[in-house]
Every structure is written in structure tokens, then in C-alpha cells.
Amino acid sequence: MKKTLVILLLSTIGTFTCKAQLIHSTEDVKLILPKGTYKLTKQEVDALPGIKLSNKINQSGGMPYNYQLGSLYIGLFNVNKDSMNNDLPREKRFQDEGHLFLQSNGNNSYNSVIKRMGKNHVLLISYTINDTGYYRFNYQNEAKTFTQAGKIEYPIADKEKATALLNEILNSIQFIE
């Protein structure tokens, strides 16, 4: 009887304290999101603080997969398998050109780089606008046929957390080829 009670107690405590990692999984990719991450509904995504300038500019389909970890927002696209979106230098040029406005407006925070991660490559982009930091990533397989793109938005005070989250995500990406 005593043993049963102890087992029951431990199970209950375990249930409350041990939050499982969240696995983001599609037919093309599997990646692990840290403990405490939860999936956002469309309404929750719409309610996120962000740029609220006009309805027209805020109207978009948004990203297909949206998660939140504390103050950090994580957005993931579906894996791109087309040639255009698997051209990382081209994507870099597009993003570099699209963010020229920052430097023109005196914001020098923009940085972009294509890095090797093991056998794979990743385009990493970072910048800050107002009090929000942005990480954009395009993680590509060795064959340059699969790219997982996504972004992290974070309060600039939580940059370390965001950087750790970015690394955790990138290191966990497994393409299903």
C-alpha cells in the first residue's frame, strides 16, 4: 500500500514538473523545440505584439507554424524543395536588398551570413527594429534540395535566450529525405 502511494505521488509530481520537449514534425522535417514551447493558434498569432501600422500591411497569411517560448516567438515555413528557395546566395541578396532601408534610416544592426553547419548550410540573418530582435534562418541540406526557413522574434533584453533557442533549433533539424 505504501509503495503504491509513493509511486502515485512520484507520478503526479513528474507530470507537473517534467514538461516534455515539443517536436515539430512534417513529412519533410523533424525538429525539437525546447521545453515550455507551445503552439500558437491563429488568434494568438494575430494578438502578438508587433507592427500594427495599418490593416493592409498587417494582412498576410502569416507563417504556417507558429510557436511561443516565454517571450520568444518562433515561426516556421514548410520545407522548401524548389530550386529558387534552395538558392541561399539568392535568398541572401533578396533579404540584403529588402533590408537596405535599415541602414538608410541609420539602423546598422542588419547582418547576414551563409555558414556551414556540418555538411549542411544555413543563411543566418539578424537585425533589430525598435525594441525587437529578429533572427531569420534558412537551413539547407547537403544536397541543397531541402531548406527549412523560419524566424525568431524576441525582446532585445532576451537576446541570449533567443540565440540559444536558435542554436537548439538548428542543431535539431532532421530532414526526412
Binding site: 500591411i57 497569411g61 515555413f77 514548410n78 533578396f94 535599415l102 525598435n130 529578429y134 526557413a149
Partner: peptide
């Protein structure tokens, strides 16, 4: 900056999706 970022974000989404 926010306006341009929203525009670029929108275009990026269309490019990817």
C-alpha cells in the same frame, strides 16, 4: 522601419509559401 519590415516580411512569406 517597421513599415518596410512588414512589407519585406510579407514578400518573404509569399516567396516561401
Amino acid at each position: 522601419n517597421g513599415y518596410e519590415e512588414a512589407f519585406q516580411n510579407k514578400a518573404t512569406e509569399y516567396k516561401n509559401k
